[in-house]
Amino acid sequence: MDVVWIGRGGQGAFTAAKVLGAAYSMREGGGYALAFPSFGPERRGAPVRAFTKLSEKPVSNRCEVSRGDYAVYLDETLFPGGSAAGAPIVSSREAVEGAIAIDARGIGEGIFGSPIVNTAMLGALARVWGGVSLDDVCEGIERVMAERHWERNKEAAGAAYDAAGDSL
């Protein structure tokens, strides 16, 4: 199970990739995960990618994937339509044709007071995929993020988890 995260520099694509990896591999009886960013000069606002590879067996192939099982777009302007890098989940207020749309910005603005979308999109992915629970995601947040960020990110993941359930 490979996930490609697509966002803009500063949106936390790699953080989301890591939280998913931790959520999957750090739970009791969990599998294996590898999370990494696309390596290149990273500038705030420029398009960036990150990857989470999940498996029952150790993940030893460290190559980037051009097409994953899911492609999570943290910014709707980066969603390419038909040529998505996997089954697309898109952060968008409006419905998006051919993709599951989550109003992650709205969730972020409500919870953080700013358009932070990465953990919300992870919550949505967890619901759509079903391979990790919301509890796993919350555990992953604790493993990867600073304690002061736990509560609101868990809340954002939970809100998007519910919203994604409605859209399924």
Partner: peptide, 9 residues
């Protein structure tokens, strides 16, 4: 990068 910056358990 492929090892130094990739995360795993």
């Amino acid at each position: 990068f492929s090892l130094t910056h990739a995360c795993e358990a």
